[in-house]
Nucleic acid binder design. Structure first.
Length: 594
RNA sequence: GGCCCUGUCGUCUAGCCUGGUCUAGGACACCUCCCUUUCACGGAGGCGACACGGGUUCGAAUCCCGUCAGGGUCACCA
């Protein structure tokens, strides 16, 4: 395949693409871009392709590329063309990707011949030239421009450019060089589906680099050539790319390529009102470390589920350097280790983070779709439609309803959507989801709960914003009976105080022994049966239900707050519940003894 | 700083193109009440915005201009 061969798509076929660079996890903003590209292709019966822009040899990795593809697939954003990936869905294997139109390969590092052919051609035609400046020279030129309060632009007059013969001689001599585009002198007009006409004055586009000294194409060169070769008709991307667009358009004009339809989407902001970035996690972690006045890398506690060994969360030198330099970033795994060692919840930024925290993919895509797009429709109850699924997007998404204003990423609202979805599921479905999440993130939970897992899931369901809330909600059931600590305040309120105002009313502690005796016989030991028993128990004794529930709650959880009594006891299981009640009775007795 | 984009409740937005139906609608958050063995869930209600200034017009959130504010971008990163 020769990228310069104009690959005109079949008339009317819309082709979109998402082109991540494999330098880390999939950013949430990238996920939105991919989602909209996907949705637009689906809506119009077009093709959605994935291309991997791995032209930065130092930062790209295959593991990252694979992770990005897996996260996309997890979100349900499937590509029609692109790298092949096999995933398991509902127990079956599904294949995503492929190359039916024969426009691959999809990794830019495998397309170098094509870029070189076009670069050579441009050199021959005088559309581009070889430049021999060293990085140091360029840096000096930038400094000079800055001190002269001028904007640095690499755009030498034609007679300043070495002659073609001289360029050839120096190249032949093996001199390191880049290939630069000879930028046009006129203004460049960009037509954008979201922003309208945007005009860039003459001179705004400079002689940017097409091919780097290492022989790899720059982003601009790769994008333009591949979009042409792959027949891309619509380029949907974040507004941060707007200033790149005149470069791409100028290149497309020079090369006689099609100019795709552009749609620059509003940015996703963080709480500080700036573009959401991975750096936030570093900042949050660094702030926490400074606040805790920690000077050496902490160890993951041995009893912590994420504990992997005796090693500290990260290398001491790297840690010190990271603390000292606010600009420095830790790799994502090291950051995760540090956070879990400190018991920190870092703000989620990449899809990977959200997945780990227990957000549902269908909620993430729904929420993301609302950032920059709006269906502008009412739902049946007359309110604005906000909750919808991928099928709805595939049917209704359009460019006209893309907004122009940057959107703050409202984590609280996302959490609310997630909670609503979690709470709206059948309890069986919720249990399945929780089990799936726990199997990779908290296998200890599954082991300890065993066949009582369904009770625990039912208890957790209305109390989880994200699946990772479950361990905290169920913490009482995840500790050893002997390790349970009784909250003194809860003991005073629910066990020691009398049940009613009348003299001689029983205290909560008084209810424990008879309750324990009856619970030992109760069948089945399940939430509904326990709640029914409790109602009968208090009716027979004319005490408020709260007195019994409070007393048992403190006895078996140590705290005044827990899920409903039936669920709480059921997810402990009879043996553990009785042991805890006994332990509490002994504890209370010890206190009352003179 | 140059260039570019944007400005409706605290936040995300509907309405703007095709001025009047807008005493500006919804969602999240917040507050109150109800339900209730605690927590949570659920239900009902409430608070709350057209950045500012000028025009055009009988009439402007909607059209025009300016001011201010916010953001993006200025690499042999993508």
């Amino acid at each position: 395949m020769h990228p310069q061969a104009p690959a005109d798509p079949p008339p009317g076929l819309i082709v979109t693409r998402f082109a991540p660079s494999p330098t880390g996890h999939l950013h949430i903003g990238g996920a939105r871009t991919a989602l909209f590209c996907w949705a637009y292709a689906k809506r119009t019966g077009g093709r959605f392709i994935i291309r991997i822009e791995d032209t930065d040899q130092a930062r790209s990795s295959e593991a990252s590329a694979r992770g990005i593809l897996e996260d996309l697939a997890w979100l349900g954003i499937d590509w029609d063309e692109g790298p092949e990936l096999t995933v398991r869905r509902q127990g079956k294997e599904a294949r995503i990707g492929g190359d039916p139109r024969r426009v691959g390969p999809w990794f830019q590092s495998q397309r170098l011949d094509g870029y070189n052919a076009v670069a050579g051609d441009m050199l021959d035609r005088g559309l581009a030239y070889a430049a021999f400046d060293t990085p140091e020279q360029l840096a000096a030129m930038r400094r000079a421009a800055e001190s002269a309060k001028q904007t640095f632009r690499y755009h030498p007059a034609p007679d300043q450019i070495p002659s073609p013969e001289l360029q050839r001689r120096r190249i032949a001599a093996g001199e390191p060089h880049v290939v630069r585009f000879r930028a046009p002198d006129g203004p460049v007009r960009v037509t954008d589906r979201v922003l309208g006409e945007v005009r860039f004055d003459a001179g705004e586009v400079d002689d940017f680099v097409l091919r780097k000294a290492d022989g790899f194409p720059t982003y601009h060169f790769g994008v333009v050539l591949d979009d042409q070769a792959m027949g891309v008709t619509h380029v949907l991307r974040g507004q941060e790319h707007l200033m790149n667009t005149p470069r791409h358009v100028a290149l497309q004009h020079a090369l006689g390529y099609r100019v795709p339809v552009f749609a620059h989407m509003p940015l996703i902001f963080n709480d500080q009102g700036a573009k959401m970035s991975k750096r936030e996690r570093d900042q949050a972690a660094r702030a926490a470390v400074k606040k805790a006045a920690i000077t050496s890398p902490p160890h993951v506690p041995h009893d912590h589920p994420t504990h992997t060994g005796a090693a500290p969360a990260l290398d001491p030198d790297a840690f010190a350097a990271w603390i000292a330099d606010p600009k420095r970033q830790l790799d994502s795994d090291a950051l995760d280790r540090l956070a879990s060692a400190m018991g920190l919840a870092l703000p989620e930024v990449s899809v990977h983070d959200f997945r780990k925290a227990g957000y549902l993919p269908e909620v993430i895509t729904n929420f993301l779709a609302l950032l920059g797009w709006n269906p502008g429709t009412k739902s049946d109850d007359g309110k604005d439609l906000e909750r919808f699924d991928m099928a709805y997007l595939a049917e209704r998404f359009d460019l006209d309803r893309l907004g122009k204003t940057n959107a703050r990423f409202d984590r609280v609202k996302l959490a609310s959507f997630n909670q609503a979805t979690l709470g709206g599921m059948s309890s069986a479905r919720f249990a399945d989801r929780l089990r799936l999440w726990a199997s990779t993130h908290r296998p200890d939970m599954l082991e300890r709960l065993g066949d009582r897992f369904a009770f625990a899931a039912a208890a957790a369901q209305p109390r989880c914003k994200v699946l990772s809330d479950a361990p905290a909600v169920l913490a009482f059931a995840l500790t050893d009976d002997d390790a349970l600590a009784l909250d003194p305040k809860a003991v005073a309120k629910n066990l020691a105080a009398p049940a009613g105002p009348e003299p001689g009313a029983p205290t909560g502690a008084d209810l424990l022994p008879p309750a324990r005796q009856q619970l030992a016989q109760l069948e089945p030991f399940a939430p509904e049966a326990i709640d029914a028993w409790a109602a009968a128990f208090v009716q027979a004794r004319s005490v408020p239900l709260g007195k019994l529930a409070g007393a048992l709650r403190v006895a078996v959880t140590g705290a005044a707050v827990s899920p409903g009594l039936g669920h709480t006891l059921a997810c402990l299981g009879r043996a553990s519940a009785l042991r805890r009640i006994d332990r509490c009775i002994a504890h209370a007795g010890a206190h009352q003894a003179p």
